[in-house]
């Protein structure tokens, strides 16, 4: 029990510092760099935002004990297919120039909804 508490304290102490260290390494001293551009305004943007939000919906959906609205294994096929479609559209079909400012946020909202409805843990 004591060890478990100690581990939790160590984890809590390290987590925020780790996030900042990684962020400083990845973003560097300047804003508007390549990583920021890649995540926010390239063909990868919809896929990255959707996938991250899908996991957030998977973990943090609104109802404990929630079951997928589409029965297994079709739920996997559905959100897997949607993820594939978004990847194909973003990377190969739609010109990244038409992506608007609010697209990342829209993909987050849709991804969170999909993760909650189709893949709740």
């Amino acid at each position: 029990m004591l060890k478990q508490r100690l581990m939790i304290q160590i984890g809590i102490a390290m987590a925020p510092i780790t996030v900042v260290l990684l962020d400083v390494l990845l973003v560097g001293p300047d804003s508007g760099n390549e990583l920021v551009q890649t995540i926010r305004s390239t063909g990868a943007t919809p896929f990255i935002a959707w996938t991250v939000a899908l996991f957030m919906g998977h973990w943090f959906h609104p109802v404990d004990g929630l079951k997928p609205v589409v029965p297994e294994p079709w739920n996997y096929a559905l959100f897997g297919g949607l993820t594939l479609l978004i990847g194909i559209l973003g990377f190969w079909v739609i010109d990244a120039d038409v992506f608007s400012d609010w697209l990342p946020t829209l993909m987050v909202v849709l991804g969170f909804g999909a993760g909650s409805l189709l893949w709740p843990v």
Binding site: I12, A13, P16, V20, L21, V24, L25, P29
Partner: peptide, 25 residues
């Protein structure tokens, strides 16, 4: 104790966020 640990960690994180971008240059 958890809240105090988190508070201290966040203070260190703020300081890192302010100064570390200069270090990585």
């Amino acid at each position: 104790a958890t809240h105090a640990t988190l508070f201290l960690s966040l203070v260190v994180a703020i300081l890192l966020a302010m100064f570390a971008p200069r270090w990585v240059q």
